[in-house]
Design a protein around this nucleic acid. Structure first.
Lengths: 264, 264
DNA sequence: GAGTGGTCTAGACCACGGT
DNA sequence: CCGTGGTCTAGACCACTCA
């Protein structure tokens, strides 16, 4: 007998109103206490804990919104919100009529922050600086023309710069900027703000395609970083778009030993 | 005169009810049409588009929930939901009494999928296989004992395996498994399912700390991958936790030229 | 056809934080 | 103080999909 009183209709929502709304709503030590349990975030955590604890098997159906609403003494709306959040987290899968199931193979996805270099360096307590090594207008190579969807003969700004942490090389950057999308870039003063910061302020909210890889330090990079050639360097390639127009393409080579950390 | 009728009270919610609820709710070509605009997702996209189009400057205050509700002819609740979503996306910042602002420096964060290797390989249309090269119980080195918070003298399963795509080496894996957290692992049959899959099924919903880096191929790795030593290899280190107990620590070295792609 | 999730609404109360 | 976001609720209707 799994479903008690299964003949009860949808309107069963919000019976058993035993919840004591009496105690102080959200005060108390900021990082203690089981969070007021009648809120969507509280219910979300409660259900997540139950799933993690193994109360239901992988792929198994968990109770419906109405049932949870009764159990936690709240409205279906609130449970709905909690379960939707868990679905976004990748913990459960939901289907109309099909109900809500624990995800068969939990999604392994992570929020990765791609910090602006200045913040990354300063966040580590070091002083940030950058140096433009080269800046000119050039015809981009064919591969890049394709990747950035440029017309033939279209010129781009080409830029090489070095990002420094406490005066030492932190990352090397090679950048192309589509001057058709951002013509003002030609006159940008890159002494104070780096090209990246300039672009972020000028063309905010652009999309980007990112690729992470490993590359070998050639002579020049080795010299810039003050190591031997042949080191393995963590590398990030990024092409940025504003709408359907390319903005910039950048190759960022981090210093030897750099690691990108995040939680999953 | 920015705020028309500013004396109007909170209850102003839901005036100007001009919304035509008449047209077909959600049918039509799956990837066309401006989404029914009176839904929270529709409003969210509409507002996002306006922000992206530059209607408000970086850091500028955008209208409040009530105002948007009037404009879009929906309830404040719906606008609230849309704006909360935009805040999660990193597009806006919200503060009580402070109102909602366009984020001064847009957050550059991305959802990265860390696929299970099998899915990654099969997703590329290749045939997946794996081979266990070594499997034994060992005392882990001190650095690892600390990272996994192991007691002295605690033994772990140690595993080296190779993941193959169409018979060719795709990634090399070195793994430690905390047998105190997962004693059953000693008896796991790793012929069919890889250690990773076995663990994912047995200890789902574990947290993990991930670090991405670049490393140099030594003789052995070069031989496994069939290349020259000295190649740069994309490397992922991951320590996995179930509650406060470590589950496994893994170093995954991808074949030369591997790139991890995602969108931002 | 029927059950489950998806969503909206009007109204309400609260919490935070600038003035 | 008081305006703004944060959240909850009861009720309602719809859409999807499984049987």
């Amino acid at each position: 007998m799994v479903r008690r009183a299964s003949h009860r209709q949808r309107r069963a929502t919000y019976r058993r109103r035993a919840r004591p709304r009496a105690f102080p709503p959200d005060h108390g030590p900021p990082e203690a206490g089981p969070v007021n349990s009648a809120t969507h975030s509280g219910i979300r955590e409660a259900i997540r804990d139950r799933i993690v604890a193994g109360e239901w098997k992988l792929g198994e159906l968990i109770p419906g919104e109405v049932e949870f609403a009764e159990e936690y003494g709240c409205s279906r709306t609130t449970v709905n919100r909690a379960l939707q959040a868990l679905a976004e987290e990748g913990i459960v899968e939901r289907k109309r009529k099909g109900g809500t199931r624990v995800r068969p193979l939990p999604a392994r996805q992570a929020q990765v922050n791609i910090p602006i270099l200045r913040e990354q360096v300063e966040g580590g307590g070091q002083e940030y600086a950058h140096r433009v090594l080269r800046r000119e207008q050039r015809k981009p190579p064919a591969a890049l023309r394709e990747r950035m969807r440029l017309g033939t003969d279209q010129r781009c700004a080409f830029l090489e710069s070095l990002h420094l942490a406490d005066g030492k090389a932190f990352a090397f950057e090679r950048r192309w900027v589509n001057l058709e999308t951002v013509p003002e870039f030609s006159d940008a003063d890159l002494a104070e703000t780096s090209a990246n910061e300039w672009l972020v302020r000028t063309v905010p909210f652009s999309r980007g395609e990112v690729a992470l890889s490993a590359s070998v330090a050639d002579e020049r990079l080795a010299e810039l970083f003050g190591t031997a050639a042949g080191e393995a360097l963590f590398t990030m390639d990024r092409t940025t778009w504003f709408g359907d127009r390319s903005v910039t393409d950048i190759t960022l080579v981090y210093k030897p030993g750099y690691r990108l950390n995040f939680e999953i």
